[in-house]
Amino acid sequence: MNWIAIGKLTDIPLRGARCVKTPQGKIGVFRTAENQVFAIEDHCPHKGGPLTQGIVHGTSVTCPLHNWVISLETGEALGADEGSVKTISLEVRGDEIFIALEEQLMAAE
C-alpha cells in the first residue's frame, strides 16, 4: 500500500465531493455533514454514473443519473438495488487527506 496525499479536508465542501484522477479511473472523495471523509470509485454500479456529481446525504450519495443510493461506508447499493463499488482506504492526518493506492497501480507508470 502506498499512502498518497490528495489535498486538504477543506478542499471538499460539507455534504459534497471532489474527484481524484488515477490511471485506473476516477476516485470520488466525499465529506459528510459530520465531517467524515470517504473514498469510493467514482462509478455507479448501475450505469457507471459519476457519483461525485450526486447529492451527499447522511453517509450515502445518490447517483445523478438514475438515483441509485450508494453507501459511502461500504460501497454497497442501498434499498432494493443490488451492486457495489470499491471502497478506497483513506486517512485524515491533521487536515491532510491521504488515500491508499495499491502497489501495482503505482507500478503501472
Binding site: I4, I6, G7, D11, I12, P13, R18, C19, V20, K21, T22, P23, Q24, K26, V29, I99, L101, L105, M106, A108, E109
Partner: peptide
Amino acid sequence: KHEFRPMASVGFA
C-alpha cells in the same frame, strides 16, 4: 471553482 477541477491527479507519470 472547486466544482470544475479534480481535487488531485495521482499515479500518473
